[in-house]
Design a protein around this nucleic acid. Structure first.
Lengths: 157, 157
DNA sequence: TCTAGTAGCTCCAGTAACTGGAGGTTCAAG
DNA sequence: CTTGAACCTCCAGTTACTGGAGCTACTAGA
């Protein structure tokens, strides 16, 4: 019989650009199903695993949280279901991205202003330190209760 | 003698908008100095503490990592030192903010495109799911090794 | 002075999404 | 049969907090 193609974890890692440890982590948290094992207890993956992992990675790159991806995967398994929820999740993600861009832009403005005002010199005269120390300023850049943690961003090295 | 003004932790928390637990956390990691204590072992803060905490909070709001803030605080303590390093830290922060904005904008573009293509309907026809599953696409939004964790963003609620 | 209620204390665990390492086993090529 | 890369499990660490358990201190009113 023709043998179906199976991949060891390192190969799957190479093909998806997802680290070996991360693949095992996804299995551990139930995002990836347990693959078959060799008699020597090593994982062997098939095409379905590869596709699922690619889906996860691409979603992560788009900033979806693992919880959202879990939900998307569940929905994707039911082809007859309406895709309303899927779109909702994506729209929520877009909204969050917009909020973060807005917030970062505000930060940017303040950073630039701060740097422009500093002529360089002694710390005692440094505008940067001064601005940071100025608490009349504090919390005007409200840190609201949003943004769980970002994909791609966050950890990586 | 005139008694100098001292604040219990809750009052400091109110004045700075920094949670009580967070203040204790900053002390634990050595970012805030240990304050005086009452005979009953409760913390009592003075104006210098309040200013330092305000500095920390404002820096966090601008997205500086705690490690950077630690460094800034060290530099701020030496008024005769040149403010080159301070400016460097701020410029690095600006650079990171710029990178994250760029990255988020790219995410945004893809999310919008994805959502626009979906006409709503069955999952089987859903463009969102399709795009996410498409691994020819994967890692074109490179997640580079940057951005430690963001202030204001990240945790909050 | 007693009491109630709020605020404080310490210690520990959990969050998100991984990453890295120790210490040991398996696989595939030569 | 040997060698070296790849694999295994388990555990701890990362960032910047947050929350809770179980206990103590402080303060205002009766």
């Amino acid at each position: 019989m023709t043998q179906i193609e199976t991949l060891p974890i390192g190969e799957l890692s190479r093909q998806t650009g997802c680290k070996v440890q991360t693949i095992r982590y996804y299995e551990q948290i139930g995002l990836m199903p347990e693959p078959a094992r060799t008699t020597g207890n090593q994982r062997r993956y098939d095409t379905r695993h590869r596709e699922r992992l690619a889906f996860i990675r691409h979603s992560r790159e788009l900033g979806f949280a693992l919880a959202a991806i879990r939900e998307l995967l569940g929905l994707a398994d039911d082809p007859d279901c309406s895709c309303e929820t899927v779109d909702d999740i994506a729209r929520t993600q877009l909204l969050q991205v917009d909020q973060r861009i807005a917030r970062l832009s505000a930060l940017r403005t303040e950073l630039v202003r701060m740097l422009e005002q500093c002529r360089g010199g002694r710390i005692a005269d440094c505008r940067v330190i001064e601005v940071l120390a100025d608490h009349t300023h504090a919390s005007c850049l409200s840190q609201d209760h949003e943004a769980p943690t970002e994909a791609g961003e966050g950890r990586a090295g």
